[in-house]
Computed example of a mutant assay.
Amino acid sequence: MKNLGFVLSIAVFALALFPASAYDPDPLQDFCVAINEPKDAVFVNGRFCKSPKLANPNDFFFSGLNIPGNTSNQVGSAVTAVTVDQLPGLNTMGISLARIDFAINGLNPPHTHPRASEILVVLEGTLYVGFVNSNPENSLFAKVLNPGDVYVFPKGMIHFQLNVGKTKAVAVAGLSSQNPGVITIANALFNTNPPINPEVLAIAFQLDEHLVQVLQKKFWYYNSKNAA
């Protein structure tokens, strides 16, 4: 990939632009249920820390982001995430990143990151990207991006990326959390366990209840590798 190192360095620099004081101020997991018995407790909101005396360079190292993700799937995209799970040195840093590969017409479906804002840098191809703000406006902020273009998705906003070019596309995303989380909207609603009552979704989407049941029986693909 031409100039990969140069563009990745730009992406890393962009990560550094997040305010230094903006370490994960919010919960680092989906929920934290209070309990009265300490013996039943689990450690939350981060990770236990290794003694600094035992730290080594590999704790701050990840290899393989140059390897394209497999886009031979339903949505034609693959996300290779690098969060605290893959790079332990990210703990308490308040940042992570991901590589996103797109086949022709590939889509990174509408989704949200409940614990992070995102900055996207296009390395190859042409992407149509956008996000929708909250009720009642529900305004769409969308743009067509080319190599070298950058776009920001505010924390918690539903956003997407679609390859509208004639070749494959590649982008790198920086996120303002060591564990940003991801909620893919369609999957989250039609692939829950147990299923949501079809009547709820039929009314919400103004669909026939039978169609909702059909959608709930589909195979919903998750395009994120290594995602937390």
Rank of each mutant, 00 (worst) to 15 (best):
H210N: 15
L211W: 10
L87R: 10
P19V: 04
A78P: 00
I67C: 03
F31Q: 15
L4K: 03
E37Y: 08
K218D: 06
G89F: 13
F43D: 03
T83Y: 06
I67N: 12
S139L: 14
T112W: 08
I183H: 01
A22C: 04
N197A: 12
N191I: 01
D40S: 12
I158K: 07
P38L: 02
K50V: 15
H111M: 01
M157F: 15
R47F: 15
D208N: 05
L15I: 07
E199R: 06
L145I: 05
N91Q: 10
E199N: 11
P68L: 01
F205Q: 06
V150P: 00
N138E: 01
N73S: 04
N36A: 10
N193G: 10
V214R: 11
F219H: 15
A16C: 11
Q29L: 03
K168Y: 04
A228P: 14
V33S: 09
G76L: 03
E209L: 00
V79W: 04
A14S: 13
P136R: 00
D149T: 03
N191D: 15
G5Q: 11
K155Q: 15
N197L: 07
P25C: 08
N163Q: 02
A116I: 13
L123V: 01
L127W: 08
I104H: 11
P109G: 05
F18K: 14
A173W: 05
S77Q: 05
D24I: 07
P114A: 14
E37C: 06
P109R: 08
K39Q: 14
P52E: 15
Y128Q: 12
S139Y: 13
K155L: 14
A188Y: 08
V44L: 03
T126Q: 15
L65I: 13
N163M: 03
P88F: 15
I104W: 05
V12K: 15
A34M: 00
F60D: 00
F153Y: 06
S51W: 08
